[in-house]
Nucleic acid binder design. Structure first.
Length: 425
RNA sequence: GGAGAUGUGGCAGAGUGGUCUAUUGCGUCUGAUUCGAAAUCAGAAGUCCGUGAAAGCGGUCCGGGGGUUCGACUCCCUCCAUCUCCGCCA
């Protein structure tokens, strides 16, 4: 959510930001509601002030044993007026808030211009393609040969997009998650968090999934709870409606969770194998920080995510998303893409975003700095999501014998195994 | 799921219809005293909205929402959370 004051003091700034994003919002309607709302508010405060004076006078008269009937009558009339005005005010406020919740964040000045993913800027490339005479096999083929996962049975028990990891595949995935978590906690000062996977409506509004993207969420109607699309939701909302001690900032959490996404409307393209799933596992980094330091923190989170890919020895690149491709709440975002040599394409494995105070306003997360109450800044980044990393591993580390080499970083988590050998005939 | 109890400022804890602009204690901040500190004494302090250049002024907030009343921390309804007991159960 943007600062409501901007709708009367910096409308042009909002307009320009939304223009860069290519977002359509009826700003004029919002500005008018705000003006009307303030007008009613002033009248309301005036009426309430009169009532307060009158009831005080009633109290005095009663205590003195005198007749207060005329004042009581007067206040009764005032009360009716207040009620009517209050209803108008509440209605305007609700309308304003409903619209404000649909307005995306404004892009930071450093975000490149552009309309779509094609305009994103590559800011870094790391690693080289493993030299190999043979063309690597597609990840689905390798996984099937080695018995690492089972899509057919996943589809049978649930539906497409719900794979089962089996045997060493399950262990390899678990190894990644443990490696990611341990690495963040040991090297970057993160506190591990294991959050609920179901959250209430307020939490989904807090991080910006609702009200705009409800059709993308799995919803348990009976209890009005939502399956989390990312651990960002429960972990960020952990501190909702809190005033954080400024000395405790930045607060950094690393959380593993399963993630659930309906992916409504995006089916049919890029959906092969692990490329797009309804359920997957991810370690998420979440940071709450001093507003003055969030862009430093953003670079730091990016480094944390990159470090994992470097440890795994996977070729990757970093994209600075253009204004038109930014997520709803992000002011700035880097995507990490890992290279899949058989697919011959880059796969997104992490989004590292600075939300500035966009989520903090929605979730009401504040701190007091130099005696001034202010909203903190929230940031988060995947570190990392496993499915596409697994794709890259499967396509990058094939051995000539048809097995799979295990990167050093994961070996301790695989009981010291250095390789998943080819299936015996 | 059933029965009962509780929800008040950073914390503890009073307040059962009208000077509550919420008693008090602890903690916090400022000042005095001191070479400095402790102790002591004095004072200050919240959120949010509106208005204003600012000081200030008006409004708001006692778990959330609604109701009764001229007036609600106080009475009623409802939801949520916590605690105790019972039931069920990883």
């Amino acid at each position: 959510m943007l600062d409501p004051r901007m709708y009367r003091e910096e409308v042009d700034k909002i307009r320009q930001g939304l223009e860069r994003r290519g977002a359509k919002v009826d700003l004029d309607a919002m500005v008018n509601i705000d003006i009307e709302k303030r007008k009613i508010n002033q009248q309301l405060d005036q009426l309430k002030s009169e009532r307060n004076t009158a009831t005080e006078s009633i109290a005095k008269l009663k205590r003195a044993g005198q007749d207060a009937q005329p004042d009581i009558e007067k206040t009764r009339v005032l009360g009716d007026e207040i009620k009517a005005q209050q209803e108008k005010f509440d209605d305007l406020e609700a309308r304003f808030r409903a619209l404000a919740l649909l307005v995306p964040n404004l892009p930071h000045a450093s975000v490149p211009d552009g309309r779509s993913a094609a305009d994103n800027k590559v800011v870094k490339e790391w690693g080289t393609q493993p030299a190999s005479s043979a063309k690597p096999k597609l990840h689905l083929e390798v996984g099937k040969e080695l018995g690492l996962f089972d899509f057919e049975r996943g589809a049978k028990i649930t539906g497409s997009g719900f794979p089962i990891y089996t045997g060493l595949g399950a262990r390899l995935e678990r190894a990644m998650l443990n490696f990611f978590l341990d690495f963040h906690v040991a090297n970057h000062g993160f506190t591990e968090v294991s959050p609920p996977y179901l959250v209430n409506r307020a939490s989904m509004i807090g991080t910006g999934q609702l009200p705009k993207f409800e059709e993308q969420m799995y919803h348990c109607g009976e209890d009005d709870l939502f399956l989390i699309p990312t651990a960002e939701v429960p972990v960020t909302n952990m501190h909702g409606n809190e005033v954080l001690d400024s000395a405790s900032l930045p607060i950094s959490y690393a959380a593993y969770s399963a993630c659930f996404r309906r992916e409504a409307g995006s089916w049919g393209k890029d959906t092969r194998g692990f490329l797009r799933l309804h359920q997957f596992n991810k370690v998420e980094m979440v940071q709450f920080c001093d507003p003055a330091k969030s862009y430093q923190a953003h670079e730091f989170l990016l480094e944390c995510a990159e470090a994992l890919l470097q440890k795994l020895g996977l070729r990757y690149r970093v994209l600075a998303l253009c204004a038109g491709d930014l997520g709803f709440g992000a002011a700035k975002c880097y995507d990490l893409e890992v290279f899949a040599p058989a697919e011959e394409r880059w796969l997104e494995v992490s989004s590292v975003s600075n939300f500035e105070d966009f989520q903090a306003r929605r979730a009401n997360i504040r701190t007091k700095i130099d005696g001034k109450m202010q909203f903190i800044h929230t940031l988060n980044g995947s570190g990392l999501a496993t499915p596409r990393v697994l794709v890259a591993l499967l396509e990058s580390y094939q051995t000539p014998e048809g097995g799979l080499r295990i990167p050093e970083a994961l070996q301790p988590y695989m009981g010291g195994m250095t390789e998943i050998g080819p299936k015996k005939k």
